[in-house]
Amino acid sequence: MTTYIIRRCLMAIPLLFLISVISFGIMKMAPGDPTALMMDPMIKQENLEAYKESYGLNDSIVVQYGRWLGNMVQGNFGESFIRQGVPVSELITARLPNTLLLMLVSTFIAFIISIPLGVWSATKRNSLQDYAITVVSFLGVATPNFWIGLVLIMVLSVHLGWFPIGGVATYGEPFSIWDRLHHLVLPAFVLATADMAGLTRYSRSSMLDVLRQDYIRTAKANGFRQKTVIFKHGLRNALIPIITIFGLMLPSFIGGSVIIESVFAWPGIGLLFMEAAFQRDYPVIMAVVVIAATLVVIGNLLADILYAVFDPRIEY
C-alpha cells in the first residue's frame, strides 16, 4: 500500500509538469499583459520597456517558463505583478483554507443528499418518487449552477434576508462559528448542486445494478428483511463505483468553485484566480493552476485508497 502511494505520487510529477507547461503556454497566448492594466496609459514607451525588462517579460517564453519552474521547485511562487511586493505564497495561504472548506463541505452536502436519494429512488424503482427524483435530477443537470446561485441569492438573501449576500464572515464582527456557517451554507449548497444531480442518477443506477446481483438473491433467500438486504448487503457494494465518480468529479468541482466564489464573493483561490486572470497576473495564475492540479491528483489518490478500503478484492 505504501509503495503504491509513493509510486502514484512519483507518477504525478510528470503530469503536473505537463499541466504547468500547457497552462503557461495558454496564458502567454492570451492577448494583453499585466503592464496594460497596471500602468498609467500615458506612460512613456521607454519606461514601459524598462518595466517589462525588469520583470523579464521580454524574454522568450521558454526562458520565462524555465525561470518560473526553477523558482517553483524551490517552493518560490514569486511575487504578484499587480499587488506589488506581495509574495504569491502569502496570497495563496490566505485564500486556500477558504476554498478547501467550501469544497469539503460542498462534497459532504453532495454525497449526503445524493446517495440516499439515489438509493431510495432505486429501491422504489418506477414509482412516483422515483420519477420525481429523476425529473428533478435532469433539471439539475441542465441548469448552470451559477444561475441557481444568483436566484438563491436574490430570493433567500436579498428578499428574505435569511442569508448574507456573500463573503466568509460579517465584516468587523469577532470570529464566530455560527456566523461562518451562516455564510458557508448557501455557496456550499450551490456548489454541491453541480454534481448532486449526476451523483443521484449514478447512485440510483449503481444500486439498481447491485440489487440485480446473485448475492442479493442469496441474502433474500436467507430471510433478511428488505432494509437489511439494502443497507448491509447492497449499499457497500453500490458505493464502490461511486468512489470513482468522486475522483472524476473533483476537476469540475474546482472549476465550479471558481464561478461560485465569484458569485458569492467568497475569498478563496477561485476568486483569486478570476481576478488574476483578468489582470494577467502571471505568477498568481500559475500558482493557482499548480495547486488546483495538485488537489485533483490528491483527490484521485484518495479515491483509489478508498476503493481498496471498500472493496476487499482490490489490493495494491
Binding site: 448475492y215 438473491r217 442469496t218 436467507n222 428483511r225 472493496d311
Partner: peptide
C-alpha cells in the same frame, strides 16, 4: 412471516457459487 421461513425452514443454494456470496463481506 416469510422472513422466518426463508433460510430457516426452507434454504436454497444456487447455480453460481462465484457470484452468490457477497464480495465485500
Amino acid at each position: 412471516k416469510m422472513y422466518d421461513i426463508r433460510g430457516k425452514e426452507v434454504a436454497m443454494i444456487f447455480q453460481e457459487p462465484m457470484t452468490s456470496l457477497n464480495p465485500v463481506l
